[in-house]
Structure formats: structure tokens, C-alpha cells
């Protein structure tokens, strides 16, 4: 089986299809930007995009995304030299504190803005509230997503 991650194809063994996408990304492929928080789809730190929609990779079996879907992780957003607008906005608002939740937050923001390029404050709030930030950077996350929507 093949799985497409950040526009690149990887082979998956048949017996690995039940494995959770999160650990395949992190421990197999070294794509450690997708973070582990709870293993139960509750906190959002592991959020990746599957065909543009946010998925909690800690509860998503590889088999569920190995059928031609496009998986995107934070590594696919932008590089240090060429940041994605959402990464830029997060930096410009100095949003992160410890930063562990931020990949998930950015993937949520990208998904929101792809579907709705000019969200209202309420729409940002209702969408982004699904992810936890233990450090409490919520005020800045609101601003960062708003800022990214203007780029």
C-alpha cells in the first residue's frame, strides 16, 4: 500500500495498516512536527490534514488514509527559508510559549482558512477552540489566525 504525505509517496506494509498514523509519522518517517498529546483525539496536538480536513492522527489508523488521500503535516507547510503564511503569522504575533501544541494549532488554522479565507472572530473562535494550549496562548492564537487571514 502507498500513503501520500506532503506530496511524497511512502510504502506501508499490510500489517501496519492498524498502526496509528501519528507514530508512523514520528517514529518511522521522522516527521516529528506532528506532536503527541493524549492518544485519544482530545487535545489536538497531533492534528494533520487529510484532503484538507483536520484529522487527529493519534486515533487515525494508517489504513484509513492509505487509499489515495493526501496527508499534510507541518513539515509540508513551509521551511525555515520559506514560511507558510500561517507560520509567519504565528511568529509575528509571538503566539507560542512552549510550542508543543502549535503544529496542531497551525494545521487547524490552515484548514479553516482553506475553507473560509476570511473568517469572522466568532468563526475563528468556534473552530480553533477544539485544540488545547496548556500555556494559554489563546489570545495570541486568535490574533495570529486573524492576521494569517489577511495575507
Amino acid at each position: 500500500m502507498k500513503i501520500t504525505i506532503n506530496r511524497k509517496e511512502y510504502s506501508v506494509n499490510e500489517h501496519e495498516l492498524d498502526r496509528k498514523l501519528l507514530w508512523f509519522l514520528r517514529d518511522e518517517l521522522g516527521l516529528v512536527g506532528t506532536r503527541y498529546g493524549c492518544g485519544a483525539g482530545l487535545c489536538g496536538a497531533c492534528t494533520v490534514l487529510v484532503d484538507g480536513q483536520p484529522y487527529r492522527s493519534c486515533i487515525t489508523p494508517i489504513g484509513a488514509v492509505a487509499d489515495g488521500q493526501l496527508v499534510e503535516t507541518v513539515e509540508g507547510l513551509g521551511s525555515k527559508q520559506k514560511l507558510h503564511p500561517v507560520q509567519r503569522a504565528f511568529i509575528e504575533e509571538q503566539a507560542p510559549q512552549c510550542g508543543w501544541c502549535m503544529s496542531g494549532q497551525m494545521m487547524m488554522a490552515v484548514s479553516l482558512l482553506n475553507n473560509n479565507p476570511t473568517p469572522t472572530d466568532t468563526e475563528i473562535e468556534e473552530f480553533m477552540t477544539q485544540n488545547y494550549c496548556r500555556c494559554g496562548s489563546y489570545n495570541r492564537l486568535r490574533r495570529a489566525v486573524k492576521r494569517a487571514s489577511r495575507y
Binding site: 512536527g33 503535516t73 513551509g78
Partner: peptide, 9 residues
């Protein structure tokens, strides 16, 4: 911020 936000270990 740069490593943190681009998925570098």
C-alpha cells in the same frame, strides 16, 4: 521559534 514551528526535532 523557527525549529519549533517547522517540525525540526
Amino acid at each position: 521559534y523557527l525549529d519549533m514551528l517547522t517540525g525540526i526535532p
